[in-house]
């Protein structure tokens, strides 16, 4: 084991994947200069292990700022023998390529009766919580959950970032990876050997018996922190991190809620038609009789993200808002007025 940051773990996975299979290439804006720190051994071009030096310009390619053309070309390349990793930098940029994601990447295998394989990974960073304003702060993974044919991962820890990315690159289905910048500097011990976290398998981040919190992306560490707070008051909280949103590990969620009888779902995306809405509906449909309290969602409100730090900070789930939701489902008195985001 070695200590890795979230970004460092992604870089390690990309390096392992590039070493393991010559068909893997990395394309995207600014990948040659290792601007985001995932295509090099360190932070600078001259560092040992720089991807451009190691793999050459044939497999590490800067692209023009042409998202629709990039995503379509990656799809065509995937259909003809390559296994591209596409670095789209900010998640908000995915909208530029919506036609290619929805009409080509997601549909080609099905429309063509299984003739097309689509082994391609589209990585993007959700830049929320960093005062970058509305154009850079989106958490758009629920939109893509509504597109059959795509698989979606949202790793919340360095180990999952590494292991899920290896599985994504090895998958013959198209994968969108949503990586929260708020997690980039998170560090933990990570296996420096190759390992794969399977797609569609949730992780139990914390075991508990009274309440299940299903948390996504940067809401996972917030939920764990909330659980630790509530433990001091004798409330035992289980935290489930789905890790993969499509396919969703329904069984793990249902098993946990059947055990605890209470569900809070926390995620940084908008409230309407979000992953939290889907998970809430799943539980209500499948195991309504197990519920001892109404389900509560803790999400971002259906608002655009304001620039000013004083306005933005209340937009996403925090350990305080998640803890408040947990208190409600176990009938503990509120510590403070429930925040607008709950």
């Amino acid at each position: 084991m070695t200590v890795m940051s979230y970004l460092g773990a992604i870089g390690a996975a990309q390096r392992e994947a590039m070493d393991a299979d010559e068909r893997v290439i990395i394309i995207g804006e600014d990948v040659e200069a290792n601007v985001y720190g995932t295509t090099g051994g360190g932070k600078s071009r001259s560092d040992k292990g720089d991807f451009l030096q190691r793999y050459g310009k044939n497999r590490i390619r800067n692209t023009p700022i042409s998202e629709e053309g990039i995503v379509g070309a990656a799809a065509g390349a995937a259909m003809t023998g390559l296994r591209p990793i596409v670095d789209l930098s900010y998640s908000s940029f995915l909208y530029m390529a919506m036609d290619q994601f929805v009409n080509q990447v997601a549909k080609n295998r099905y429309m063509f009766g299984g003739q097309a394989s689509m082994p391609v990974v589209f990585r993007s960073a959700m830049f929320y919580g960093l005062n970058t304003g509305a154009h850079h702060s989106d958490r758009p993974y629920p939109m893509f959950m509504n597109v059959p044919g795509l698989k979606i991962i949202a790793p919340a820890t360095p180990s999952d970032a590494k292991g899920l990315l290896r599985s994504a690159v090895d998958s013959d289905d198209p994968i969108l990876s949503f990586e929260a910048c708020l997690l980039w500097s998170a560090k933990e011990d990570v296996d420096e050997n190759e390992f794969w976290v399977p797609l569609g398998v949730a992780r139990t981040a914390r075991v508990g018996t009274d309440v299940t919190v299903v948390a996504i992306s940067s809401s996972v560490p917030e939920a764990v922190a909330a659980a630790e707070e509530l433990a001091k008051e004798g409330v035992s909280v289980e935290v489930i991190d789905p890790r993969t949103l499509v396919p969703l590990d329904r069984d793990a969620i249902l098993r946990s809620v059947a055990k605890t009888g209470r569900l809070v779902v926390a995620e940084p995306a908008h409230r309407t038609c979000g992953a939290a809405a889907e998970i809430s509906a799943l539980v209500a449909e499948e195991i309504f009789d197990s519920l001892k309290a109404p389900i509560i969602r803790v999400t971002a409100p259906d608002m655009q993200i304001p620039f000013s730090p004083s306005l933005e900070k209340q937009m996403y789930p925090t350990k305080v808002t998640i803890a408040a939701a947990i208190r409600r489902v176990v009938d503990l008195p509120a510590l403070q007025p429930v925040a607008a985001a709950v």
Partner: peptide, 28 residues
């Protein structure tokens, strides 16, 4: 689409399949 003869697919969205061929050229 008939991948056996290199036909990577026709498209109902005007212009949408152009980058697909471009990606095949990138593969080559």
């Amino acid at each position: 689409a008939d991948f056996a003869v290199g036909s990577l697919g026709e498209s109902g969205i005007v212009g949408s399949s152009i980058p697909i061929a471009n990606g095949a050229a990138l593969s080559s």
